[in-house]
Nucleic acid binder design. Structure first.
Ligand SMILES: [Zn+2]
Ligand SMILES: [Zn+2]
Ligand SMILES: [Zn+2]
Ligand SMILES: [Zn+2]
Lengths: 176, 176
DNA sequence: CGCGGATCGTTACACTGTAACAGGCAGGGT
DNA sequence: ACCCTGCCTGTTACAGTGTAACGATCCGCG
């Protein structure tokens, strides 16, 4: 799959629901294939959780997800969402943004070895996931030099995305 | 700029209270100089908070700090600690480890421009702070290419530190 | 003296995450 | 059919993390 790979300048219109749905189907398909291959259960709760995260254009907290999954008369507890998120993050379908205590859908389908760099915009709240072999290499080099054996990596950059720089701050940052 | 010349080989013996006290005096001096220069108040609470964080060899939570600062009859509330930590982190005297919700003393005296890489050991819980111009460069390059203007960076690597990989022979010195 | 600013104590509250236990449901052996 | 087992989910309770709001104190300044 080569999603927006030729986007050049990362115009990332996912501040809203730009290409959310398309990605959602992609992710669900990937999850089903993965569950098939590994003999895991891609249950309804896990699927609905993935869909909710994928369709929101910005990081969602576990309690926000629980609220979106709940219906009048059928409440989904946050603890169930946490368990679903455990499954999804373990298999690389969603990522946790440590600096925000929130979750975003994976945009790249990278393996466990490749770690992502998250660009978090202060103005519009969007999160862009990029992969850079160069960063990977320099990280590996530094770690090897320090005699440190890495298991998981977190790289999160907070700042202002390209779309928000030109226009003051027209990013719609929804309260609540 | 003195480049972490103190510790050369990153053998980081600070798993316990190795060179805590020495660093503590260093940090306090740096804080006093900084407050002097900028006309800020390095109050008793801020100093004691910095000392507590500096003397522990591992990341401390805000509530842990509050507990250590409290005495029978003189309780320090966590919210006060958070305010002191805000001051200390804003001026680069301590760093927050986002993946742990905990705080460590700065080991390098780097400016705001240089971002640190934190090596967090799963076994002994120690945190080593290193600066790598190479990582910095590749990050800058990737960000520029994405049209993203960075404000703050978080790089946290979890894994196993050099000392814990031996598992029988601790603290083996590795020349070069 | 009165005033504004910064700090700190205190309370209350929201948000994040996990432990423990119980019920449901599918698959497999008998 | 039955039981047994493993996995998932619902529910409750709780620990840990972080902030808002208000008031008191201190201090420098006109
Ligand atoms: Zn990803
Ligand atoms: Zn933006
Ligand atoms: Zn530092
Ligand atoms: Zn270690």
């Amino acid at each position: 799959m080569d999603e927006h790979g030729t986007c050049g300048h990362h115009g990332h219109a996912h501040g809203r629901d730009g290409h959310g749905p398309a990605r959602t189907a992609d992710l669900v398909a990937r999850a089903e294939r993965l569950a098939q291959d590994l003999g895991l259960q891609f249950t309804a709760l896990r699927r609905r959780t993935l869909e909710v995260v994928a369709e929101e254009g910005r990081p969602l907290g576990a309690y926000d997800i629980a609220e979106r999954l709940s219906a009048p008369g059928k409440r989904v507890a946050a603890v169930s969402v946490y368990r679903a998120l455990d499954f999804l993050t373990e298999h690389g379908l969603v990522h946790r943004i440590a600096s925000r205590n929130a979750f975003v859908p994976c945009e790249h389908g990278h393996g466990a070895g490749e770690s992502a760099v998250f660009l978090i915009c202060r103005s519009c709240g969007s999160v862009d996931e990029t992969i850079s072999a160069e960063i990977e290499r320099s990280l590996d080099r530094t770690l090897a030099q320090a005699g440190f054996k890495p298991a998981s990596r977190i790289v999160e950059i907070e700042g202002e995305c390209g779309a928000c720089q030109g226009r003051g701050e027209c990013g719609r940052l929804e309260p609540r």
